[in-house]
Write a protein that binds this DNA or RNA. Sequence first.
DNA 1: GTGAAAGCGCTAACAG
DNA 2: CTGTTAGCGCTTTCAC
Lengths: 335, 335
Amino acid sequence: MKYVTIIDIARELGISKSTVSRALSGDTHNVKSETMKKIIDTAHRMGYQRNEQAVNLRQQHTKTVGIIIPDAMTPFFMTFIQHAQKELKKRGYQTIVTVANEDYEAEYEYLMMLTQSRVDGILMSVCHKDKNIEAYQQVMNRGIPIVFFDRTVEGLDASQVRMDDEIMSYFMVETLIRMGKRHIIHLAGPSYVIPAVNRHIGYRQALEKFHLPYDERYVLEGGLKFHEGAQAMQNFLAQGLEFDAVFCFTETTMVGAKNVLQNMHYRIPEDVAICTVSGTELCTFVHPTISAVEQPLKQMAIEASRLLTQQIEDPESPRENIVLRGEIVLRESTK
Amino acid sequence: MKYVTIIDIARELGISKSTVSRALSGDTHNVKSETMKKIIDTAHRMGYQRNEQAVNLRQQHTKTVGIIIPDAMTPFFMTFIQHAQKELKKRGYQTIVTVANEDYEAEYEYLMMLTQSRVDGILMSVCHKDKNIEAYQQVMNRGIPIVFFDRTVEGLDASQVRMDDEIMSYFMVETLIRMGKRHIIHLAGPSYVIPAVNRHIGYRQALEKFHLPYDERYVLEGGLKFHEGAQAMQNFLAQGLEFDAVFCFTETTMVGAKNVLQNMHYRIPEDVAICTVSGTELCTFVHPTISAVEQPLKQMAIEASRLLTQQIEDPESPRENIVLRGEIVLRESTK
DNA sequence: GTGAAAGCGCTAACAG
DNA sequence: CTGTTAGCGCTTTCAC
């Protein structure tokens, strides 16, 4: 047989499986230290590994949380996941991560899959702020807590953790302006993504503060994928308008846009600065341009994990709405 | 209660849970189509979701495979995972992925964790070709199949899937030479990583074929992480040697090296071409330089998944050693 | 065609 | 301190 069970080791020692179970779960209070030792030893010798499935079934939980992210090509969410996994592990939870790939129908499927796997709770960043709202509500009604992060939703009684996109976006654009940029494109994200609309607001406010005109021709629908970002950039170029900076909603579309620019032999960042608010190690290294804020990402993962486990362990614990306000850190000066 | 069970629906209908079970698992042969329909309907109405945990415990498998990768910052492995997940799902398996982060001790921990979770099999790309060999052997001995991909190992009776690194590396360097490059650095990977040594061989062979000298000063230990690649590049620069191309073992170190080059105002690719063999969408977009081979990555994921599930379902199925030979596809000409 | 009963590996009362 | 018993949700003989 593949695995040794507590019965095997009980038989080996001629004692009952209850005692073995107690010993193996570290119940020093109810088992003599002598038998304790004996049990631990033979368990070790026989290569015992407790069957989590059985424990879960018995205890009516799985000690695992599901994570749903919209995208995995970009280091942003991957970094989040690594931090979250670490934090969750520390709190005694396994994780199972799924990638919806910006498709809310796939997201729905994964949500169902996760509840079917009886995860104790879910951490998610949504593809679309409206489309699956009732589904989220339903799983929450069944007593499975969901904590939303980054790409949050509205009108749900759930904990959420996000960045202060508006202000960070504002600072970022302000930085560009102070660098002397005057014609700043905004490669915006879709309006069904909350951080995207907030960043757009921040962009607009910065322009206003410096009395720069807000020109709709400089606001592009940049989508969420590489090719969408590239396409949008290309469309803009076709207009023949003057520009000296591009402020992007996300790393993904930024990379797409940058690629187009490079192919057209624009020098970056001399001719045009290109940036986003996100900040991961890879981002820093990849883009010879200004990037931003590393720290809140880790913090976001930690807070979200904390909130979720808290709510799993005490369903009555209050919902929180955390807005992180990391400092803008310019990763590379453009002299 | 959170979930409805077959007992609930049996009670609702005043029948036995056995019948419900049979109906729900589609046993048309042993349950009257009339009751069948009735059961399916109420199951649906009550929002029944079968408890996989219980099924697994009963059937002595989990229908999940573990995946261990060394790195998640780079799109390479993430892309692999997406393809593998898709293929595995098609074959009825869930996946649980863990990232060792180039640390073979963490890798060991995850391996243990996965067997403890009773995964039916494991897909892995190792951190170190030797360090955990006995551990791999042990889990295989317990009847849990492992299929190695990309970063393979030697001397184990396991199926493996990898690229023909030698020949692809050879082609890549040949391409650089045909472009007129004469002083090609090789930012090599560590010797405890099999593809790294193979790529080094390919590099050397290409130089030989074109009667270019093999100079050890042009072969750098580039490590596996961003900062290691950057450091190596910096060290090389300090030597003051002439160079016009860099052939990197991996995306990660390539990005690090490229960053250094850019900071020093080298024009890429005019002054120096920089490339690697890997090929993912992000890679393509990010690097204004030559990259390569997209297709084998997907193929690798599919083959590895096939091999693994095959071996799970029939432990006696023969081991295979697949070497993929994708075409070199230049993603961007450097004119 | 359907039901009763056993059991997957484990924990948790409840007795001693 | 230790053993006995029941049961988590499900599948699978074995009867009827």
